[in-house]
């Protein structure tokens, strides 16, 4: 994991603090919480700590963030180009090189009852993206059948490794897995988290046969890929809107295998979403993979055969 892209968007003094942090902690950081007038908090999977000029410390002794710090981070994150990130700011997050997501809060500016932009940014949550090569190796055999990928839905609550598992699945499918595949994979990377593109080039390993539409809205991206790149597998992250499902149905109709993720605790949660329930009832998904963060992020709670009454197969 390239932590330097996170250090690079920090003001010099915070960069200095991070450089004094224990390497073992750096490799475990999941989130860095930065709020004006409050201490910096570093979160790992199992603990929280603060940050000061001596490196990691108790939260009580942590450096208190100033407005200038937040403004500086925002400028560095945007490359001094807030105009280029208007859409991202409207959605409340910005993705930086390496696929790390910077969530922002502040005062919203409303126009025509819609969020126009965000001003007076007062807090940030830097979510560290990690590539875990091989984390999907145990899942792949259950979602491949007769040289094709079963239409697969990955279900997991936030912070359970959905995107990490999806990224590794894409890599495995694109590279080929024990004689199955390889496949041409089309990825609509709306939040730039999957491939972590920098100037259009994937920075994460997503395989050699993967085409990435970076920062593209899912629906438009799905249609664009279907028209232009003839993918065998189409991968998207965090589906949720009705239009997303409609676009996926379009892809299913033309014989493309679907690989997507959705927020939820389990299969029952999926049935609470009317359009997704409809898709499951129609048997459009063949496999459902449920993830959990217990005992650790990316733990597979179960792989279900959606064509066989959600029988657990792993």
């Amino acid at each position: 994991m390239d932590f330097s892209t996170i250090e690079n968007v920090m003001p010099a003094h915070i960069k200095g603090m991070l450089s004094k942090t224990k390497p073992s902690l750096l490799s475990e950081i999941e989130e860095i919480r930065i709020r004006v007038g409050r201490p910096i908090i570093i979160e790992t999977h199992s603990a929280q700590c603060g940050l000061n000029r001596d490196g990691d410390c108790d939260i009580q002794k942590s450096y208190i963030v100033t407005k200038q710090d937040i403004d500086g981070i925002l400028k560095f994150v945007s490359g001094f180009s807030l105009y280029a990130l208007e859409d991202e700011l409207r959605q409340g997050y910005i993705t930086i090189a390496g696929g790390h997501r910077v969530g922002v809060v502040g005062k919203t500016v409303i126009e025509n009852r819609c969020v126009k932009t965000l001003r007076d940014v007062s807090g940030m949550n830097i979510r560290v993206a990690r590539e875990v090569i091989g984390c999907s190796d145990k899942i792949i055999p259950y979602i491949l059948r007769n040289q094709r990928l079963c239409h697969t839905l990955i279900v997991s609550p936030p912070k359970c490794g959905k995107t990490t598992v999806l990224r590794d699945m894409i890599r495995n499918l694109s590279t080929g897995f024990h004689g199955q595949g390889p496949f041409n994979v089309g990825v609509v990377d709306e939040r730039s988290e999957i491939a972590g593109c920098y100037r259009g080039v994937p920075q994460n390993n997503v395989g050699i046969r993967t085409d990435v539409l970076d920062a593209c809205p899912k629906v438009e991206g799905i249609y664009m890929l279907l028209r232009s790149m003839a993918p065998q597998v189409l991968a998207v992250d965090e589906i949720g809107k009705k239009a997303d499902y409609e676009a996926l149905e379009e892809a299913l109709a033309v014989g493309v295998s679907i690989l997507c993720t959705v927020h939820g605790q389990d299969v029952e949660d999926c049935y609470k979403k009317p359009v997704l329930k409809d898709m499951l009832d129609k048997g459009l998904f063949e496999r459902v993979v449920v993830l959990s963060n217990r005992p650790m992020v990316g733990t597979v709670r179960g792989i279900f055969d959606a064509t066989n009454n959600f029988k657990i197969i792993a």
Binding site: G79, F80, S81, Y83, A84, R199
Partner: peptide, 10 residues
């Protein structure tokens, strides 16, 4: 900037 929303540095 106008056509591609290119970041300032680029």
């Amino acid at each position: 900037i106008d056509y591609q929303l290119t970041p300032l540095g680029e």
